[in-house]
């Protein structure tokens, strides 16, 4: 038997042991193999949970959260907030277009960073990973920053210090270093966009019926926007590389530049799970999450949460 044969047999024996069926094969086996199976039993049988100091307190805390009074209070507040937005369509429109994604570079703050820093109090903040957060601002703060209606087709603007792309699901933007190119490049195929992007792009394995790829835009820093055209308006998938860059200045001096994404919205943020990790859903703005050093936003003017999750789970 070669190693793969032994590994297959080991897998069968372990599964039998874990399912109380005993060892599968009475044939004699080498001592090393029997010892490995004994060790597997020990690994499965060893219980460390008695050393936990939070087990009972955590249980109480979680059950209290489900407790009827607290739960219903939360639902009531959420319902009231939703009702408020539905009754005020003008404010709701502002909510859609306020959604702004900010590339916040600690070393070179710019216009977009200033917008984020100008807002001191968030109603709600949700961290979706080491480099991705979503903040809900108050209606007052939203009203203080009136925005144009969202465009049906994306609008690109470039300035000396940055770029913006206005889309149906919100405004996206980033800063560039002084004397660096702020051009947003447009491509008609996915492969051309991939060639211009410094990380491995992902694309949906599933799209709703009638949707096809239309174009891609690659902004400075590699942030990539994929547009899919279909019967209910665009579906947009945005992918931002996020990371910490550490530059060693001398033996004892290190400068860390953090490339991260912050999203502002004045709508409630719903925490959902995507592939076992937290994601944020904002009605009209889309689904946001972080995975493998990339911050994602997926949305469409008419895209439902269930469809967004299905598309996100199909990324390949």
């Amino acid at each position: 038997m070669n190693e793969r044969d032994w590994a297959d047999r080991f897998s069968r024996d372990v599964d039998s042991l874990l399912n109380q069926a005993g060892r599968t094969d009475p044939e004699p086996t080498p001592t090393e193999y029997r010892q490995a199976l004994d060790l597997a039993c020990t690994l499965a049988a060893t219980d460390f949970s008695a050393e936990s100091r939070v087990r009972q307190a955590l249980r109480r805390r979680l059950l209290n959260r489900i407790d009827a009074r607290e739960w219903w209070q939360l639902r009531k507040e959420y319902t009231m907030r939703t009702f408020f937005w539905k009754r005020h369509p003008a404010v709701t429109l502002a909510a859609v277009v306020l959604a702004a994604i900010l590339v916040v570079t600690l070393a070179w703050p710019g216009t977009l960073t200033a917008v984020a820093e100008g807002i001191e109090n968030f109603v709600q903040s949700l961290s979706l990973g080491p480099h991705t957060t979503v903040h809900q601002v108050s209606p007052d703060q939203a009203a203080a920053r009136p925005q144009k209606p969202a465009p049906a087709t994306p609008e690109v603007k470039q300035r000396s210090d940055g770029w913006t792309i206005r889309t149906a699901i919100g405004n996206f933007g980033g800063n560039v270093l002084p004397d660096h190119d702020a051009t947003v490049h447009r491509f008609s195929t996915f492969d051309m966009a991939q060639a211009a992007t410094p990380f491995s792009l992902r694309q949906p394995g599933y799209l709703p019926a009638g949707y096809v790829f239309r174009e891609a835009m690659v902004a400075p820093g590699g942030s990539t926007f994929l547009f899919y055209n279909g019967p209910e308006g665009d579906i947009i998938l945005v992918q931002w590389p996020v990371y910490d860059r550490v530059d060693k200045l001398s033996d004892d001096q290190v400068v860390t530049t953090v490339f991260m994404i912050g999203t502002l919205t004045d709508k409630p943020i719903e925490e959902v799970m995507l592939n076992g990790q937290p994601a944020g859903w904002v009605e009209g703005s889309g689904l946001m999450w972080e995975a493998d050093g990339v911050s994602f936003t997926l949305g469409g003017a008419s895209l439902s949460l269930d469809e967004a999750l299905r598309i996100a789970e199909s990324l390949e």
Binding site: R4, W6, A7, V14, D38
Partner: peptide, 27 residues
């Protein structure tokens, strides 16, 4: 799936060498 089986088998064999296997050897 087969890769999972091989990695697990190798890992347990490495562990077996690391720990005092006599403790679990019922023979």
């Amino acid at each position: 799936e087969s890769n999972v089986g091989v990695i697990l088998y190798r890992a347990v064999q490495r562990l077996r060498v690391e720990v005092n296997v006599k403790e679990w050897d019922h023979e």
